[in-house]
Amino acid sequence: ASVAVIAAGTQGNIFATSALRSMRFLQILRMVRMDRRGGTWKLLGSVVYAHSKELITAWYIGFLVLIFASFLVYLAEKDANSDFSSYADSLWWGTITLTTIGYGDKTPHTWLGRVLAAGFALLGISFFALPAGILGSGFALKVQEQHRQKHFEKRRMPAANLIQAAWRLYSTDMSRAYLTATWYYYDSILPSFRELALLFEHVQRARNGGLRPLEVRRAPVPDGAPSRYPPVATCHRPGSTSFCPGESSRMGIKDRIRMGSSQRRTGPSKQHLAPPTMPTSPSSEQVGEATSPTKVQKSWSFNDRTRFRASLRLKPRTSAEDAPSEEVAEEKSYQCELTVDDIMPAVKTVIRSIRILKFLVAKRKFKETLRPYDVKDVIEQYSAGHLDMLGRIKSLQTRVDQIVGRGPGDRKAREKGDKGPSDAEVVDEISMMGRVVKVEKQVQSIEHKLDLLLGFYSRCLRSGTSASLGAVQVPLFDPDITSDYHSPVDHEDISVSAQTLSISRSVSTNMD
């Protein structure tokens, strides 16, 4: 405001104040949320940038038409019409005319000016109207692209899951042992070998009828009888010197917790746990005396209480009078009846079946994303299906024409109403129809010849004498029936064969 007042002088105070007050009108834009329509302006900018070359070309040609039209109309009207006294007036008329506004304040009066105005109007309006069409088509394409992008975003994750499931299904095939990355992934998420051994031990116990592997080994086996189970490696608790092959000598807290839970599941009659010990102070733990958990001091820290809870689970003690015997301790020893080589084939089979199920689920979810969402998608899918159906029908028609023997030239002739090819031409065609016709002709010829021969033979049998045999009239074959199959017997006289037959029969009768 200060700059405006200084620039306008003393009389500019009122002007500056009114100008600043008129800017209050811009507050109405906040009512229509114009300040939060950044996406709309961004869309407009992207459309203009995408079609910038077309817009520049249309505007450039339109500007050239405007300059030439205004100049030529000015030359034609400057002497006869006072409205075109300057080139600026003519340029104003050209702008209003070519933009199809047409105020009518300035019009050419001479015939030359009117002809020039009409010609440049028809030429220039087309170029001035091009930017509107370019922007409209650009907006339509952009909206369609955003629509497809939205659908693509919805299909991206199911497609990625389907590709991942397909690759993992491919890589978990037993015949592709060189693909090891997927197996490394499952090695990292699978439970430890100790848990798998416990699982298979329970399965084997159920197969043995509820007997433990130790009891199965204690059962008497006759001499020479084959053992029911192959000899396997035996594993004891981590306190002993022997372990399962492939295990580490260090046992983690999870393994100890699972070991304690498995020992508690063996039965309360074979294992008696004394009350857990509780320390009397955060600094020292008295293991010899058993106290109640309700006497825990409230001033303990979080670490002390955590250690106390761990001691409740991981440090059970047995009383002296209830101490288990050596046999019970041997039964409680952890027996590992299986090795990694025995378990891994079954584990890989389970993983393979899981990968198949996940692949089928991913495939079903991806197919669900291909379903249409709204009416536009339904129409688009219907149009695509219609085009596909037309293509299939056209391909089927082409194959039928190839089989029947109607080529493209014959199809055009039928469409024009011309006469089709004759039967002889159809026979000569190298097509399925021509071959079928040729075979039918040959079969008819053979059938006719057989009928003639059978009739001749029956007449010979009825006559009974050589004289009557020679008097029999043998009809000749019709050459038209034989089609294109020409037998060497067709052109010979059958009477010669009949005479030869009669001579042979007379000779045979004389010999008798």
Rank of each mutant, 00 (worst) to 15 (best):
R168H: 06
L169M: 09
Y170C: 05
Y170N: 03
T172P: 03
D173N: 04
M174K: 06
M174V: 07
R176Q: 09
L179R: 11
A181P: 15
A181D: 11
Y184S: 13
Y185C: 13
Y185D: 11
D187E: 03
D187A: 11
I189V: 08
P191Q: 11
P191A: 12
F193C: 14
R194S: 05
R194I: 14
A197P: 01
A197T: 08
L199W: 09
F200V: 11
H202N: 07
V203L: 03
A206T: 05
R207P: 05
G209E: 14
G210S: 04
G210D: 14
R212W: 07
L214Q: 03
E215K: 02
R218Q: 06
A219S: 00
V221A: 02
P222H: 11
P222L: 05
P222A: 14
D223A: 03
D223V: 09
G224E: 02
A225V: 05
S227P: 12
R228L: 06
R228C: 10
P231L: 01
P231H: 08
A233D: 01
T234P: 07
T234N: 03
H236Q: 10
R237W: 09
P238Q: 10
P238S: 11
P238L: 07
T241S: 00
P245T: 05
P245L: 03
R250P: 07
M251I: 05
G252S: 07
G252V: 06
I253V: 09
I253L: 02
G260S: 01
Q263P: 15
R264P: 06
T266M: 07
K270N: 09
K270M: 10
Q271P: 08
H272P: 00
L273M: 14
L273R: 15
P275R: 08
P275L: 11
P275A: 03
T277A: 07
M278T: 02
P279R: 15
P279A: 15
T280S: 13
P282S: 08
S283I: 05
S283C: 06
V287G: 04
A290V: 06
T291A: 14
T294N: 14
K295M: 04
K298T: 15
K298E: 04
S301R: 14
N303H: 15
D304G: 14
D304V: 15
R305L: 13
T306N: 09
R307C: 09
R309W: 08
A310E: 11
L312P: 14
L314H: 12
K315N: 14
K315T: 14
P316R: 10
T318S: 13
S319A: 13
A320P: 11
E321A: 11
D322N: 10
D322A: 07
A323T: 15
P324H: 09
E326G: 04
E327D: 14
V328L: 08
V328E: 12
E330D: 01
E330G: 04
S333I: 07
Y334C: 08
Y334F: 11
Y334D: 07
L338R: 04
L338V: 04
L338F: 05
T339A: 01
T339P: 12
D341V: 01
D342H: 04
D342G: 02
D342N: 05
I343N: 08
M344R: 12
T349R: 03
T349K: 08
V350F: 03
R355M: 06
I356F: 09
I356M: 06
F359C: 07
L360R: 07
V361L: 00
V361A: 07
A362D: 00
A362T: 06
R364S: 07
F366I: 02
K367T: 02
V375G: 11
D377G: 04
E380G: 04
G385A: 15
L387V: 06
D388G: 15
M389T: 01
S395G: 12
S395N: 03
V400L: 11
V400A: 11
D401V: 11
D401A: 15
Q402E: 01
I403F: 09
I403V: 14
V404M: 07
R406G: 08
G407V: 12
G407R: 11
P408R: 05
D410N: 01
D410E: 02
D410Y: 07
R411S: 05
K412M: 08
E415Q: 13
E415V: 14
E415D: 12
K416T: 05
G417C: 04
D418V: 11
P421A: 03
S422A: 13
S422C: 12
S422Y: 08
A424T: 05
A424V: 09
V426E: 12
V426G: 14
V427M: 09
V427G: 07
D428N: 05
E429G: 05
I430M: 04
M433L: 01
G434A: 08
V436A: 08
V437F: 08
V437A: 03
E440V: 05
Q444K: 08
S445C: 12
E447V: 11
E447Q: 01
H448P: 04
H448D: 13
R459C: 12
C460W: 14
C460G: 12
C460S: 08
S463A: 08
S463Y: 12
S463C: 03
G464R: 11
T465A: 14
S466T: 10
A467V: 02
A467T: 11
L469M: 11
G470D: 11
A471S: 15
V474G: 15
F477V: 14
F477S: 12
D478E: 10
D480Y: 15
I481F: 07
T482N: 07
D484N: 14
H486R: 03
H486Y: 14
S487T: 14
P488S: 06
P488T: 15
P488H: 09
V489G: 13
E492G: 07
I494N: 12
V496L: 10
V496A: 05
V496D: 05
S497P: 07
A498E: 09
A498S: 12
Q499K: 05
T500M: 15
S502C: 15
S502I: 14
S504F: 09
S504A: 15
V507A: 11
V507I: 12
V507F: 13
S508G: 07
T509P: 02
T509S: 01
T509I: 13
N510Y: 08
N510D: 09
M511I: 08
D512N: 11
D512Y: 13
